[in-house]
Design a protein around this nucleic acid. Sequence first.
DNA 1: GAGTGGTCTAGACCACAGA
DNA 2: CTGTGGTCTAGACCACTCG
Lengths: 259, 259
Amino acid sequence: MTDDDPRRAAYRLYADQLREAIRGGTYAPGSKLPTDAELAAELGTNRGTVGQALRVLEAEGLVSKSRRGTFVSAIVNKIYRDSTSRYNRSKRETGQARGAFAAELRALGMTPKNTTAVNRAAPPRWVAEILGVAPENVSTVARARHMLADDVPVQLATSYFPLDIAEGTRLEELDTGPGGSKSRLAELGHAQATVTEEIDVRSPSQEEAEALGMAEDQRVYQITHTARTKDGRAVEVAVHVMPTHLWRLAYTWDLSPEH
Amino acid sequence: MTDDDPRRAAYRLYADQLREAIRGGTYAPGSKLPTDAELAAELGTNRGTVGQALRVLEAEGLVSKSRRGTFVSAIVNKIYRDSTSRYNRSKRETGQARGAFAAELRALGMTPKNTTAVNRAAPPRWVAEILGVAPENVSTVARARHMLADDVPVQLATSYFPLDIAEGTRLEELDTGPGGSKSRLAELGHAQATVTEEIDVRSPSQEEAEALGMAEDQRVYQITHTARTKDGRAVEVAVHVMPTHLWRLAYTWDLSPEH
DNA sequence: GAGTGGTCTAGACCACAGA
DNA sequence: CTGTGGTCTAGACCACTCG
């Protein structure tokens, strides 16, 4: 049964076998796989070919390899991110939105944690373009967050606010207070009216891969979240970077009246 | 022999170099790269290492390898899919929605094309669950589309409708008529009120990879588009599969009143 | 120091596309 | 028939981790 399709490379067949074994529970989440050499012996091939097979599974996020050995990924269920309800005003005002990430994680039985760093910075050129600020200058307040689940990094998110709006406001403090940055913007006369999220999938940069503890062969979502006032001015751009194998995204909307 | 970072593997450095060369225009879109052996000689390494480097670029969708040689990808700009405006009722009624895909492609100077096949089928188990139909039976009408851009396949989309709704209606014909399937459902008393799209990224199956002309190391979006009536009944599930390196997704919504 | 995966090299054979 | 990338094998050295 191992020799169905002669077109299919051996390492892909081994990858299929190992994937099945993992899904089937032969190797539990978090457990250590046999060494490449042992697997090679079991499967009747050599270390290089097994390494190739395991690299396929690593790219899928199913295993992670290190000098200590190969391990089955501990996180099995993807984290669910529902953007539309996340930014729902009623939830925000009752303080639920603030814990959207936390609630999603607790639903999976995981412990959320995150760190925030605030500073003034020159945004990436393409973000500057959206915000309509000078790309070379220190023209924004940047709030950079690292989000962890069970102490595993799962998302990097940086929000940029135009400096002329955010300068000297609570948006520069670590804790933006009840309702979060969106409530603060509203108080400053820049209430957000519409939101756009653009989704891309790409390879992580070397730095991102390191910060997220992922292999460079894996992929990240890059979500560009742009909030605009009623006049159409962009007052916040948030860039979310997260491994694709850890997240599922969702959007909901009505088809009712004009929409 | 650029020996900047001893941590970074040679094949990644070569991949970086070649990526730069392609982005910089040294190799034009659609053109053929030197053979692996030639590149190996130029770079002072061997065929295997060059192959590894090019595999990285192939996984990113930047080049495609075949028995005929390695070619720079012809499609440079990603196709833009704005789901919220795509399913906007006013556009749909004026017939614009029908051409959403076509319009997006023409904006990029590409020629759209697509084929449709309709049949009654048993849906995947998880689709059956959403629709609330029997998973083992032929319980749906399935409309399978292949979408091409400049004769290159760029998306596979299959819509499932419960058989008890769609049986014997225009939903079983190749041309669903003005306004498309959504208008037909409305006429049948099953007007769609809300839509949810769930986004996953995964490896393509062997069949999908072949149908989409992509490498198995590349990734696809899987978008599960569920439309429900006001009562909450799911009346359509559409599954879209498309290579991540060819598409950018977008969603827009208002933060107004209750939303 | 032993064990592990990472990488590179070298060479061989294969299947397929094109002249 | 020839050239191409695909793959497999075998062996070597490396860097890192852990006991």
